[in-house]
Design a protein around this nucleic acid. Structure first.
Length: 204
DNA sequence: CCACGGATTGGCT
DNA sequence: GCCAATCCGTGGA
């Protein structure tokens, strides 16, 4: 582990809290992927909350299926899904057994392994300066940059493959609440949260 | 078995 | 700003 990072890994209790509380507190945390050889990490700067109990846009809204069953377990596991025939997206499952709540990680700011992320995303080592902000500015881009696939479905975030490192909780004044992106149902819920003025978010 | 559409992205107008 | 690509999960016949 890089000695510059704080070492406190988030534990189960963090994830089992109320959906929007966890979504807010996820902002600023450090996402780490360690496959045993390569460590890649980034600060979470944008998320979206989903609650299957009444939110029609949530994958868990219509009940448990093989695809979404991890969403119905206790918080602190990774829900990875495949969409549009091309992209994986990562969610942090939250709450208690049976809740069906999760937070989609929409954008991160690269911290460790940037050159590896560049290669994963663009297949080459050097990028133009402006491409720096195109590395991890979307849920599909994050999974490509960090090599997260369906193989990582259901990973326990309190383990050592993919986990989060604690960081100070942000003030409400540092967080922007806006409408979620790319959905057709429950479009008015202001459940997309991002860090104000951060250049790595997917869009304003 | 088959048809449909999606929590996106990137390229083109 | 608009739209095609692409394929798997889901639901209905």
């Amino acid at each position: 582990m890089n000695p510059e990072l704080p070492h406190k890994k988030l534990e189960r209790q963090f994830y089992t809290g109320e959906l929007l509380t966890v979504a807010k507190e996820l902002l600023g945390k450090i996402l780490v992927k360690n496959d045993g050889k390569i460590i890649l990490s980034g600060k979470i700067v944008e998320v979206e909350a989903y609650d299957g109990s009444f939110d029609e846009a949530a994958h868990s809204f219509k009940g448990k299926t093989k695809r979404n069953e991890i969403m119905f377990g206790i918080g602190g596991f990774l829900y990875v899904y495949f969409t549009y025939g091309a992209h994986f997206c990562s969610n942090v499952v939250t709450g208690k057994e049976g809740d069906g709540t999760a937070v989609l990680i929409r954008a991160i700011e690269p911290v460790i392994g940037i050159n590896r992320m560049i290669r994963n995303r663009f297949g080459r080592d050097l990028i133009k300066e402006k491409e720096k902000y195109n590395l991890t500015s979307g849920p599909g881009k994050i999974c490509q940059a960090l090599s997260i696939t369906k193989d990582h479905y259901g990973i326990d975030l309190t383990g050592n493959k993919i986990f989060l490192l604690d960081q100070p909780i942000l003030n409400d004044g540092q967080i922007v609440f806006s409408k979620r992106i790319g959905i057709k149902k429950s479009v008015d819920l202001p459940w997309r949260l991002y860090i104000k003025d951060n250049p790595y978010i997917s869009r304003k």
